[in-house]
Design a protein around this nucleic acid. Structure first.
Length: 282
DNA sequence: CGCCAGGCTTCTA
DNA sequence: TAGAAGCATGGC
């Protein structure tokens, strides 16, 4: 059920939206814990999300919910059908149980591209700080913060302009991505078209400098709603090596591999399952 | 001080 | 086609 009043929208248990899990599972970087909930900015809009899996409270104008957040939180996609398919896989079943309440966000594609370019060889607190500085320096002000910058804004910057962000060697990658988007050489919105094969969507992203398979899959999953994308980072590689000695085939789950990835990643990152060995040599 | 963090590019065999 | 170094920055 969705009950909407002018300033607040309340979701109930069939939406399975756990703010804590959703905002801390590593898919996004602009929702900060604040007063028993999370404050976030996306699409130039502000929102405060609180409550729990079975009753999630969204503080925002009703028109913003209808026009933006409903899509951003992918509210109308039920998760049960995808969760019901994994009964035969013990690790996945446990991970899905533990990660119940995670919702895969549909973040803005350009912001997602930038944040995951910045994520490489980095850690979450520092990624968060980098993104925050980027917004503060180059984003449009909102009532109590800053929107993520537009590609057209970043495209005009020089590496020196970007110096205060302290993105290190990732700065030129960021500028190249902004220019590709601003100049129309890369149409991010086209990547969410389901008729575009996953490999083709990946190829368009990895054509950018500093964007490889992992970042591309993150952009497609967290920014395009492409659940066929399955990002594999160092943590996922360890978990997969430990629990799937014969290999895990995301292609077997073209409709939900990305959701399963988040369950696995969330689980491996929070030690709900035995800690993976330092590194596997396969 | 040295090592490493949610990768990627480049260079080497 | 696989493996290793180097990459800027900051935390430990």
């Amino acid at each position: 059920m969705i009950s909407v009043t002018p300033g607040e929208t309340v979701l109930t248990k069939e939406h399975a939206f756990d703010p804590q899990k959703t905002f801390t599972c590593g898919q996004c970087f602009r929702f900060q814990p604040k007063a028993e909930g999370f404050f976030g900015i996306a699409g130039g809009r502000e929102i405060f999300v609180s409550g729990s899996r079975n009753e999630t409270r969204l503080l925002c104008p009703a028109e913003d919910f209808a026009a933006f957040w409903r899509t951003y939180f992918d509210i109308d996609r039920p998760y049960e059908p995808y969760r019901a398919q994994i009964a035969g896989d013990p690790f996945l079943k446990a991970a899905a149980e533990f990660g119940d309440g995670i919702r895969i966000l549909r973040q803005e594609p350009f912001e997602t591209l930038c944040t995951f370019i910045l994520s490489q060889c980095n850690n979450i607190p520092r990624i968060t700080a980098l993104v925050e500085r980027l917004a503060r320096h180059f984003g449009r002000p909102t009532p109590s913060g800053y929107a993520f910058p537009e590609p057209e804004t970043l495209a005009l910057l020089s590496p020196e302009d970007l110096a205060p962000v302290r993105a290190g060697y990732r700065a030129p990658y960021l500028l190249a991505a902004a220019r590709a988007v601003a100049e129309g050489r890369l149409d991010l919105s086209a990547l969410s078209d389901p008729s575009l094969p996953l490999n083709e969507a990946r190829a368009r992203l990895t054509a950018l400098p500093g964007v490889g398979r992992k970042v591309a899959d993150c952009v497609l999953l967290f920014g395009q709603g492409r659940w066929d994308a399955f990002p594999v980072d160092v943590w996922m590689r360890r978990a997969l090596a430990q629990y799937y000695p014969a290999g895990f085939q995301p292609e077997n789950y073209p409709a939900a591999a990305g959701l399963y990835q988040q369950y696995m990643f969330f689980t491996s990152g929070t030690s709900a399952t035995p800690a993976p060995p330092p590194e596997e040599h396969v």
